[in-house]
Amino acid sequence: MADYDTIGVDYANLRKPDPGIAEPIFAALGDARSVLNVGAGAGSYEPLDRDVTAVEPSAKMIRQRPPGSAPAIQGGAEALPFPDKHFDASMAILTIHHWTEKAKGLAEMRRVTRGPVVLLTFDPAHRGCWLTDYLPELVTLDEGQMPVMEDYARWMGPVSISQVLVPHDCSDGFLYAYWRRPRAYLDPRIRQGMSSFWKIEGADAALERLADDLESGAWEAKYGDLMGLDVLDTGYRLVVSVS
Rank of each mutant, 00 (worst) to 15 (best):
P57E: 08
P57C: 11
A59L: 15
A59K: 15
Q64P: 06
P67Q: 14
G68K: 08
G68V: 06
G68P: 04
A70Q: 08
Q74D: 07
Q74H: 11
G75H: 12
A77D: 08
A79S: 14
P81F: 11
P83Q: 13
P83F: 09
D84T: 14
K85L: 08
D88Q: 12
S90L: 07
A92E: 02
I93C: 04
I93R: 05
L94E: 14
L94M: 12
T95F: 01
H97S: 15
W99T: 01
T100N: 07
E101M: 11
K102M: 05
A103I: 01
K104N: 08
K104P: 03
G105N: 02
L106C: 04
A107N: 13
M109E: 03
T113Y: 11
R114T: 13
G115W: 02
P116N: 06
P116M: 06
V117T: 15
V118W: 08
L119G: 06
L120Q: 10
L120C: 08
T121K: 01
D123A: 02
D123G: 01
A125I: 00
A125L: 02
A125T: 02
H126Q: 13
G128I: 01
G128P: 00
W130M: 04
D133L: 03
Y134L: 11
E137S: 15
L138W: 06
V139I: 15
D142C: 10
D142H: 15
D142N: 14
Q145E: 15
V148Y: 12
